[in-house]
Each structure stands twice: as C-alpha cells, then as structure tokens.
Amino acid sequence: MSIHKQKTFRVLAIALLAMGIMMPAAQADDGHDEKYGGKYGGENRGKPVQPVQTNPKFQQECSTCHIAYAPGLLPAESWRKMMASLDKHFGSDASLDAQDNKEITAFLVNNASNRWSASTAPMRISETAWFKRKHDGHEINPAVWKNPQVKSPANCAACHPQAERGNFNEHDIRMPR
C-alpha cells in the first residue's frame, strides 16, 4: 500500500468511526429512534404539545384550578386514566358530567403525545422521563424550585409565561428572581 493510499484509508476509517459515533446520537436526538425505545426511554412529550385546533370545553374545564396542561405532555393512556378518576384528582374532586367528560377525554386522547413509545402512563407530568431530564440539576439550580413564586413543578407558568398556550420554548423561559 502506498503512503498515499494508506493516508486515504486512515482518513476514511476515521470518518467512518466518527459517523458511527455521531449517527446514534443524531437519531436519538430527533426522537424517532424507535429501535432504541425512543428518546427518554420512550417517555417523550409530543410535538406539537398543543394542537392548532383546541377545544373550548377542555380550555374552560381544565383551567379552573390549574393551567390547562397541553395534551401532548402525556400519552393517551395517562389521559384516559386521569379522566376516569376525576373524582379523586390529586386530592380534590374534579368530576365532570358524563357528556363533558367524554368530549374532553376524546380531545386529550386524540392530541396526546405522538412520540411516546414506552408502555408507561404516569399521572403526573413531572414524573415523565422527558420532564425530569429537562428540569434536572444540570438545567435548573435547585434553589429555583424553593422560590415561593414557583412553589411546585405543577406551576409551569412560573418560568414558562406562555405555558397556557403550549409554548415551552427555551428562549421564552423567564426564571423568577
């Protein structure tokens, strides 16, 4: 093998190796890598989290005690469980009449996360793998959670002012001081 050929081979080998390292990362990053169970072990929020066409009943009924959490934040099975246990909703009775419950369940299920491949169905958004990763100690100083203006991870709007509209864009985050 000539020196020239050897050099080409080496460059090629390095390039191939580099691709091999980078490819899975790139695949995992766009969240469509079903082979590896998807991003965040398959517990990924949907895209978009809030559908273009919303539902007035959902908006009205689900925003009385807290913001109307976007349907794409949880998988369909979570919403089914949630809507079937509204009389015991995180320590409060939030029951609806049968017709309203049916309409809102359909809206939530139809617009649930489209990137969730795990068989899990958590009841709390803050228990999902994507949420925990995006809000871990590397991303957020633990002191932020203790701020009385934040109070609870359920209070999305404390740092995501446009949470109600389903906008959780990193550029729109405003941490309270």
Binding site: T64, C65, H66, F90, G91, S92, K151, S152, A154, N155
Partner: peptide, 9 residues
C-alpha cells in the same frame, strides 16, 4: 377573590 389551597390559582 380567593386562592386555590393547593395550586394557588
């Protein structure tokens, strides 16, 4: 005006 005892809304 009141305030939700849990969520603060």
């Amino acid at each position: 005006p009141g305030k939700h005892a849990k969520t603060g809304k």
